[in-house]
């Protein structure tokens, strides 16, 4: 896995990651599958966020509203 997440547009992946569809599996395999799904989703989130988190946060400044 890349340590420097690149920002890239995410295509409309309908399958929800590689591990989304699978045949019934045993308990620990199930847990492993869930962990794998979480991992791939967190990777996906990483890939769509601006890579410099600190800059993004600091740059998000509004005037007060209402």
């Amino acid at each position: 896995m890349s340590t420097q997440p690149q920002k890239r547009p995410h295509g409309g992946d309908e399958n929800g990651g590689p591990a989304a569809e699978a045949t019934p599996v045993s308990g620990s395999a199930q847990a492993q599958k869930r962990a794998g799904e979480l991992d791939s989703m967190l990777d996906e989130i990483d890939s769509v966020l601006e890579s410099n988190a600190e800059e993004f946060v600091k740059g998000f400044v509004q005037k007060g509203g209402e």
């Binding site: 995410h10 989130i45 769509v48 966020l49 988190a53 600190e54």
Partner: peptide, 22 residues
Amino acid sequence: PKLEQLDMAYHDVHPRRGVFNV
């Protein structure tokens, strides 16, 4: 900062970039 960013990105309305939408 990464967690602060996520806190904000959760509310991004973009259907594929907004974290709630993901």
